[in-house]
Amino acid sequence: MKVELQSRNVEAFLLAAKTLHFGKAAELLCITPSAFSQRITSLESQLQSRLFHRQANTITLTEVGDRLLRYCEAVAGLEEELLRDIGGNKSLGGTVNIAGFSSASRSVLMPALQALQLAHPELTVHFRVAHMYELREILLRGQVDFIVSQDEIERAGFQSLLVGHEHNVLVERADGQGQSEVYLDHNQSDDFTERFLHRHDGGSDKLIRRRFCDDIYGILDAARLGFGRGVVPVHLLSPDMGLRLVPGYERAWATPVLLQFPHRDYYPAPLRAVRDALINHCRDALAVNRCQLRYTVFE
């Protein structure tokens, strides 16, 4: 027996999946919260499955909800691609959402997609910067189409492709007059510096004094101003930054950069184009060494 999903119920589901808030989604539809809940309940009843986990103040997609979201996105992509093709428009259009950690988004993702974006101005690519620990949930919740992360999502239905490595080095103010006993991190939960020192120094677990700078560009600025030492990717460094490798730390930690996305039976043309551009061009952006630094690599 054929099951047909009512479009108004699916519309409500999509808004709830994107906002993760029934109240906000109801406002966008200009209906009451009660009427909105009825649409979601009706859809869940038809599918005989819960689509959302409901907590006190938040909602999250269930596994079935995640599958429905992917299905709806695929259908929408196919429809748009068909209409553009029938209309004779061979340019790519639509919207693609990408999230990445701070040292990759501006310096790797944007350059990798520059040629594609200029060639297809009707294609809209939204970039989002997130902390490493946030990226997995952003992708699993369906808030973006791709993430670039260093931590692989080991879950059925998702693909993970290695697009290159960051070479991370320890730097300090060029004249050596900075606070050498302080180390710079993103926030309290960031243990990247400790792991770098542990690996570089052969297992040393010395306690370090830390200062937090929110993102990689804050770390670069703070190191330049002498607020401490920071572990940063080589591809972000330039000769005018006033930084140098810390003496005795001429080795770089190579960390993987992974492009991750949900598996689809069919990828609409905009998603295929963005995926292929990232696969083909991220590696070059990651290999940039403007300061011509000489170092050896460890993993």
Results as ranks from 00 to 15, higher is better:
residue 36 F to Y: 07
residue 169 V to S: 06
residue 270 P to D: 09
residue 280 N to V: 01
residue 252 A to M: 04
residue 278 L to D: 00
residue 180 S to R: 15
residue 18 K to E: 09
residue 36 F to K: 01
residue 287 A to Y: 07
residue 112 A to L: 05
residue 79 E to T: 15
residue 46 Q to F: 05
residue 89 N to E: 14
residue 234 V to S: 07
residue 55 Q to R: 13
residue 127 F to R: 02
residue 107 S to C: 08
residue 245 L to G: 05
residue 21 H to A: 09
residue 266 Y to M: 08
residue 273 A to G: 00
residue 71 Y to P: 01
residue 165 H to L: 08
residue 258 L to N: 00
residue 228 G to R: 02
residue 9 N to W: 10
residue 91 S to G: 14
residue 273 A to H: 01
residue 159 Q to K: 05
residue 52 F to I: 07
residue 171 V to E: 00
residue 14 L to C: 09
residue 82 L to W: 14
residue 63 E to Y: 04
residue 175 D to A: 09
residue 49 S to L: 09
residue 90 K to N: 12
residue 58 T to V: 10
residue 9 N to M: 02
residue 175 D to F: 10
residue 193 T to K: 01
residue 250 E to M: 01
residue 12 A to P: 03
residue 178 G to Y: 06
residue 29 L to M: 14
residue 1 M to C: 08
residue 67 R to D: 10
residue 74 A to H: 03
residue 246 V to C: 06
residue 262 P to H: 08
residue 5 L to S: 09
residue 238 S to P: 05
residue 47 L to P: 05
residue 193 T to I: 09
residue 128 R to P: 00
residue 55 Q to V: 11
residue 55 Q to Y: 15
residue 180 S to P: 01
residue 43 L to R: 07
residue 48 Q to S: 15
residue 23 G to H: 14
residue 12 A to E: 02
residue 169 V to P: 00
residue 117 Q to I: 13
residue 297 V to T: 10
residue 42 S to A: 15
residue 239 P to L: 04
residue 58 T to E: 09
residue 81 E to H: 08
residue 3 V to Y: 03
residue 76 A to P: 07
residue 99 A to V: 02
residue 298 F to G: 02
residue 143 Q to R: 12
residue 81 E to R: 02
residue 184 L to D: 04
residue 130 A to F: 12
